[in-house]
Design a protein around this nucleic acid. Structure first.
Lengths: 120, 120
DNA sequence: TGTCGTTATGTCCCACAGAACATAACGAAG
DNA sequence: CTTCGTTATGTTCTGTGGGACATAACGACA
């Protein structure tokens, strides 16, 4: 088995609101870097996209997950709120549950895969 | 709570091979209808797309998941193999595990959502 | 040997997500 | 009151996933 298969989870709420690995990872990177732009750079995505994701994240929950500040010596920054951390934790918990309890089925599936030796 | 959030799961294997709700549902509908085109119609997707999905499904596993026959009185048809049923079962098992064991975290997340009363 | 519904493919087209650029606005510190 | 990095937005461009069509091939059966 070359590399372990990755389980990707996405939650579709009412309307078009959804939460998946993209927003979760972004949230996590913002927490680490304290800045949207730094997170975007680190994740190799455009600042605008990251900003848009934060925007939708904040608007889909009652309490904002990320608070931003503009100006100042550091230019500004972004901080993940308690609510944001909680949301992130819940999402990670779901992923973890899936990884742990689904290892068996996942192994079954992997065993049936054709061995494409990642050609070229 | 308007409608229950849907958990969507996708498995990314090595290379670009991946398995998600799309292929799983298609597999299931083919099993029910015995035909790719009927499944496509029933799922509201073009025949070509359904055919392409079946093609990639068959090529990403060692044993084909769907066998097809052309011509004949009925025009032809498609049958999901034992292997296909097994793959489908494993995927559904993963989904089920997620729904059951993740209900708690999912409820937490839902509770934090902004109540967008599905406007318009 | 003609019929009929399905599988099998190719071509054209378009909506749309996201990249790439381009500017403002901001505000603490020096 | 200048500087500096960040947040905040708008505009343009493009790759592409998938829809919409168009045909061919197939083969059991009447």
């Amino acid at each position: 088995m070359p590399d372990a298969p990755r389980l990707r989870l996405r939650i579709h709420f009412a309307g078009d609101a959804m939460l998946g690995p993209g927003k979760a990872d972004l949230l996590e990177t913002i927490r680490e870097t304290g800045s949207i732009s730094a997170a975007a750079r680190q994740m190799g995505m455009s600042y605008k996209r990251a900003w848009q994701l934060v925007e939708t994240l904040n608007s889909m929950f009652r309490v904002p997950l990320v608070v931003r500040t503009r100006g100042g010596a550091a230019g500004g920054g972004a901080v993940v709120t308690e609510e944001g951390l909680a949301v992130l934790a819940d999402f990670r918990a779901l992923e973890l549950v899936l990884m742990e309890r689904g290892a068996g089925a996942l192994a079954n599936l992997s065993a049936r895969l054709a061995d494409n030796a990642t050609p070229k």
